[in-house]
Design a protein around this nucleic acid. Structure first.
Lengths: 171, 171
DNA sequence: TGGTTAAAGCAAAGATCATTGCGTTTCGAC
DNA sequence: GTCGAAACGCAATGATCTTTGCTTTAACCA
């Protein structure tokens, strides 16, 4: 039931459907539109729910290579590779347009913060000088997402440059 | 005519209207909905047009204080102050959701790039060591916009920290 | 002034969405 | 098994959107 709905939304988003409405989602999911109208306030609410699930879902394990630079580079590459996939990019856009009011946190950011914290913690235990977690979010995550959301290109070279920049701050 | 439509859209966005449709825009603008249906493909196309005009419109003069650090700080503050205004944030969201397909450039980014270029050029003429324009975009603009779009808070302290971070890269 | 063309208004029709009341199913508790 | 609550399906209704053909206005140019 719920998974059918999520799948339906996922397919529509993946296909780049221009119009995504409750009736359309319901038909593909094999449920009655009324169900959707009753459970979610509007399409954006459902869309955001699915987007968050999709964007935070797969429990990517954080790289652990022995140096923070290598960890961050691989991590940035994974993220860059992930969020440039068309359906991921669409989810991001959907999430952005969905949250109409200012809220205090964003699930996606929080996940990245946790991942960054882990890498930084390990690096510090090794005695490395590290940027702060916030610096990593500001100068690696933010540019990556910014460029995806505003429709510019993101590649491995770009991800690598971001890592070098942020590490240059603390040298 | 066109300005009435733009004004109508601007008001609706500013008021945080949940539903923005051609008929609603048309009524407030005192025009016939048919006109809008004929001129724009859909609401998002019109919305993006107005958003771009609003976000790149006012010809903010770039700070020229004598040092790049001060220039960047004031500039970042201006931007932070501007894009955290609810209607500006809304425009940003509208723009994001409007551009469904990957395009090569974003009008807002381009304007910021020009502004950053000017400040960097002046700083270099004074003999300052500067970050690249791209670094400024990546590490000041991107975090600011990212935080607005993903509904976190942006204040002057944050803007200042970004400037310090990016300058630390080149020291 | 008169003619031509592009844009806007008007009205009607159909499509899609959104809401609501009511009957049915499901599932757990007793 | 039976009861009750919650969720879902169904169908009808009204609202809103979207399209289309035709008319009218406006602007531009000979």
């Amino acid at each position: 039931m719920l998974t059918a709905i999520y799948t339906s939304v996922g397919e529509l988003v993946g296909e780049g459907a221009d119009k995504i409405s409750f009736p359309i989602i319901a038909e593909r999911a094999g449920v009655n539109p009324t169900t959707l109208y009753r459970r979610w306030d509007d399409v954006n609410a459902l869309l955001e729910e699915v987007a968050v699930a999709a964007l935070t879902g797969d429990g990517e394990s954080v790289p652990d290579t022995g140096t923070l630079e290598q960890d961050l580079t691989e991590w940035a590459n994974i993220i860059a590779h992930d969020i440039t996939r068309p359906e991921r990019a669409r989810y991001l856009r959907a999430m952005v347009s969905a949250r109409v009011e200012i809220v205090s946190s964003c699930p996606v950011t929080e996940k990245r913060r946790e991942q960054a914290s882990e890498m930084v913690r390990r690096a510090r235990e090794r005695g490395e000088t590290t940027p702060t977690v916030q610096q990593i979010l500001d100068h690696i995550i933010a540019p990556l997402y910014y460029n995806v959301v505003f429709a510019l290109q993101v590649d491995h070279e770009y991800a690598r440059r971001l890592v070098r920049d942020v590490l240059a701050m603390v040298r």
